[in-house]
Structure formats: structure tokens, C-alpha cells
Amino acid sequence: MTKPLIQYFLALLLAPLLPGIINRVKAFFGGRRGVPLFQLYFDLYKLARKVPVYSRTTTWLFRFGPVAGLAAMLCALMIVPFGGRPSFLSFEGDLILLVYLLGLARFTTVLAALDTGSGFEGMGASREAQFAVFAEPAFFLALAALARGGGGLSLSGIFSNLTPAAWLTASPILTLVTASLFIVFLAENSRVPVDDPNTHLELTMIHEVMVLDHSGPDLAFIFYGAALKLWTLGALIACVILPRHSGSWLVDSGAFVLAMFALAAAVGVVESVMGRLRLLKVPHLLMTALTFSILALIFQAGR
């Protein structure tokens, strides 16, 4: 019981480090020194102490959005395995609950954005709702392709069933699933090439524009929730690409955390070498992810 607890708190503690790593990698590619690694921690501390500003248009729903978003992510984090080891909420079918918790976070964020009555935030909300339509089936089918390999329907079961030997016998399938999950990971976390977190033009933003009106502790909740989402979805990819289980909890956990950092660095590299796609092309990218998932499923059917 203590180990899942330690894993959970470790994830809570380390999640805000991931955006810091991404920023440092981007700064390295841009030849800059970049913001400190722990900048998000400082930001969260600063924001938590501020008095929020609320628009006169907004209602309780606007304040409820960040709270529900954070609560859903805290709950989702209880489901994802930590280096292939089960968490608290690990049961047959937990992956379904995970997807719908992400849906809850998205739904409340979208409603909170619409509550401001701002055209810009409506635009962001519209895009967020649109991309989810393509990302969610891709995500589900990628998980289905993994579940097809055996190990039951709980994420920890699936990932503990995954061994290095699977990468030898089924490398095309696992590569396709990883690619699909990575695209969904980038889209859901509003990273390049779907969304640019650093853009300064509100017309082109997606996630950032939805939270323009939030301030103070609410914004801290949103930033922290976003970091947790990065961790939650990243953990799935890390579990796929790191199937080795040594048997020692300490070694496994250490390797997993390192894999998460490596994943963040990979996101940084992607953001440095790519531009963002035109908004009209984003559904195409997500359909590509869906295609990869379906291909992985078809390949698996023939084995």
C-alpha cells in the first residue's frame, strides 16, 4: 500500500518538472539560456497567493472549471501505472474510466471558457471540442491494440504483460501504437504541431486561449492540471517504450522517471524542429493517429 502512495506523490511532485524540461530543451535548440528548470513551481507558488480577477459576465461555472479539471486529473493519475506497477485504482476496464476522466476535465474547461462570453475563448473551446472527436477514438483504439496483446483490461495488467520480447516479435505494432499515442499526447497537451503554447496571437491558440480569463489560484490549478495531464498521458508512452521489469521497485521507478524526462526532452526536440500545423490540418494529423491505431489492430489480427 505504501508503494502506490509513494508513486502517487512522486508523480504529483515531479509532474511540473516536465514543462520545465521541455522549455530547457527548446532553449538549448534556440541557443538561449532559457527559464529555470523549476519555473513552473515558482509560478504555481506565485499564482496561488494572488487574488483572482473575475469578469462580471462569469458565474460559478467559471470557478468550478479549474477545480473540476484538477480533481479529474488527480483522479486520473490514480489509474495510470507507474513504471508498469499498479496504482490504487487499477481494475478491469480502468482505461475506460481514464479516458472519460480526461473527458470530464475537457468538458468543464470548455464550459468555463464559454462562461466568459469572449469570442476568443469560444474559439478555443470550439477547437478543443473538435479535436477531441478525433483524438478520443485514436486513443481508445491504441489502447485496444495494446490490450489485444493480452494481460487483461487494466492498464497495469497490459503493461506488466509487455516484455522486451514483445518489441522483438511485434515491433511494427508497438511502433505504430507508440506513434499514435505520441500524436494524441501532443494534441491533448496542446503542444506543437497541434498548438503552440508560446504563441502570442490569441486567434491561433487552442488551450491557452480558453484560460485567458483565469487568474490567481484558478490559473495555478489549470497549470498544475496541465502538468498532471502531461504526466498521465506521458506515463502510458513511457510504459510502452520501457517494457523491462527488473523486479526491484527502486530500479524500475528510477528508470520510469528517467523515461518520462526523456519523453519531455523528445517533446522539446519536436517543438524545436517543427512548426505548428495549420488549424485545418490538425484533424488530418489526428486521423493519421487513428489510422496508425487501426493498422496496429489489423496487424495484430493476423498474428
Binding site: P283, H284, M287, T288, T291, I294, L295, I298, A301, G302
Partner: peptide, 21 residues
Amino acid sequence: GYPASIILCLGAFAASSWLGA
């Protein structure tokens, strides 16, 4: 369009795997 092409292609692959078997 792109989506229709991709869906047709995927459908063709699924159908060909069914046929191939």
C-alpha cells in the same frame, strides 16, 4: 479529401486482409 482517401485506403486494407485469408 484527405479523410475520405485515408478511410478508403484503410477500408481497402481491411477488405484485402479479409480477402487474403
